[in-house]
Design a protein around this nucleic acid. Structure first.
Lengths: 334, 334
DNA sequence: CTGAAAGCGCTAACAA
DNA sequence: TTGTTAGCGCTTTCAG
């Protein structure tokens, strides 16, 4: 089906192993031979078969990326970043959308593991216990993306600080009573955000109204949450993420409450669309491409330097920053 | 690194080939042996090495998907759909984001080709000539997704009809002068849409104002286009896609023009966020998961039945439909 | 129904 | 510097 190394060897008048060496980076071949081999390879359109190579090197040249939902632009962005960095390092990436289903996620890990050199796992839903069982499932290195867990290498963003920044911003604008619409309760990221909210609540800086949890997708009971926010007397609201923020704004608008004049809204993630919305969304920006890049780099480091027992895995925490756009405004007459 | 077929064979007291047969679907093994092998495999946590298998069967069990930009939720959605269907058929999928760059796209095809059984290509940017050169690059089957090209199997949506539906809807609401903000000029999809717009223009049903082309992402000169629309005297606008529509609405809002009261807006694609926007977007819905599914199925059919020379490749065209939400309204006092 | 042997395309010792 | 040999893990003839 493909042109093999043997045909190239024949065409160049050398042995297959010489072809292999000539085409490899560290191969020890004479310049003339290398040129002859290259020419022959080009002429025949030779493409090395990665499966055969992998069989012997133990490296596949593939990475696995598992995300909970590509429909959430946050994860699509992650995916793009991972893909770009992996390409730069000569690796192709398998993407698996786990559809927010723990069973599918575990399946994906099991299925992907034997075909990749390492796995990047965006898994807000898996329990700590399930995560802990992973190293038994596969010996391939795993990097957690946007989740931190003892015993795992990870790259995360400082969401706690992001939330306090958001609240501080609202306070500076004169808001004193602020609602928080949380995300799925059991999630790691939800806990991180809540910690930031609670820290501010306890400091007494702001009066915080906690408006339960909504699913962070498009039909997740956001309408009801918006109505609760409206009834609470809050003049501003921080949302679990940008999608929830969009949902809130949509409902506010439908009820004739103008954003930001009558209600300030802050999102989280800074998905690409948030700058395009009407009004453009003030949001806590999570470093997506930078985080993806860092995660891929961390995984590669682990590939080069297999884990030493007793040495704790690297956990990198990236800063967030608040992007102030048009959905927040100063409160008139405190 | 992994447990091999030989260890399973030893554990089950049979030969490697028997293990292979026992685990394969069509293997001719006695029920007892099969059970014994299965038990041993389970106990040892055996996972067949797909690379080794692929080397001999000529099948990788992988699909390649190439998209121009995952940041566009339309393609993220496609990706999700392809992934879901491929998983159902036991295939993993490589995703490659070509970053709207023809060179990267060609590279991706070249790189992916030897590692997959077939390729799903979302390529609005490649010229017809470049596309035509693809079969020389690889003999792997290719299905074009959301682009139709002579000589290629494809799955597309009827955008022309979608556009005429959108305009008909606006006409029914009393609009008589409607702007069209087009996308990148040279794109296949742009041509399809333009055909629908022109058909209506020629019919004389509506007065169409063509407002040039904007890049279909977040900074693509949409602000300027919005101002041109406003100056044109149109009471409604059809946008190249939902993202452009969001950008227009954002600018309209910033200039104090209310949507839909003073300006109706129609998008195209029906990305997940469009129902969440404020106001929720009226849009031409393109069947994304259905299209992805159809494309994967078509690719699998080609894998089963290699192309017969002289027989034209299958080209499937899916219907679009207009989703009327809150961004369009009847024109007061025509 | 099962085992032995060959070999997919490639790389990595080891000799030459 | 180059060729020869062996073998990665698996499937698939071919005998038995």
């Amino acid at each position: 089906m493909q042109v093999t190394i043997r045909e190239v060897a024949k065409a160049a008048g050398v042995s297959p192993s010489t072809v292999s060496r000539a085409l490899a980076s560290g191969g020890t071949v004479s310049a003339v031979t290398r040129e002859r081999v290259r020419a022959a390879a080009d002429r025949l359109g030779y493409q090395p078969n990665p499966a055969a190579r992998g069989l012997i090197t133990g490296r596949t040249g593939h990475l696995g990326l598992i995300v909970p939902d590509l429909l959430n632009p946050f994860f699509a962005d992650i995916c793009k970043g991972v893909q770009a960095r992996a390409r730069g390092l000569g690796h192709a990436v398998f993407v698996s959308d786990a559809e927010r289903d723990e069973g599918l996620e575990l399946d994906a890990i099991r299925t992907l593991a034997p075909q990749v050199d390492g796995i990047l796992l965006c898994s807000p839903h898996l329990s700590s216990e399930e995560l802990a069982s992973l190293p038994g499932l596969t010996d391939k290195p795993i990097v957690l993306l946007h989740r931190k867990e003892p015993g795992f290498a990870s790259v995360t963003a400082d969401l706690t600080e992001g939330m306090t920044d958001a609240l501080t911003h609202l306070h500076a604008l004169g808001h004193r009573r602020v609602a928080y619409v949380g995300g799925p309760r059991s999630t790691w990221a939800a806990g991180e955000r809540a910690a930031g909210i609670e820290a501010v609540a306890e400091s007494g800086l702001l009066d915080i109204v906690r408006v339960g949890s909504v699913a962070p997708h498009f039909d997740g009971g956001i309408t009801g949450a918006a109505d609760v926010v409206l009834a609470s007397g809050a003049s501003a609201v921080v949302a679990f993420n940008d999608i929830v923020a969009f949902g809130l704004i949509s409902r506010f608008t439908a009820r004739g409450v103008r954003v930001p004049d009558e209600m300030s809204v802050v999102g989280c993630d800074d998905i690409a669309l948030s700058g395009m919305a009407a009004p453009p969304l003030t949001t806590v920006s999570v470093p997506k491409s930078h985080g993806s890049r860092a995660a891929v780099d961390l995984l590669f480091r682990m590939l080069g330097t297999p884990a030493v027992a007793g040495e704790p895995p690297l956990q990198r925490v990236l800063p967030t920053h608040l992007v102030v756009r048009g959905s927040t405004a100063a409160l008139e007459r405190g």
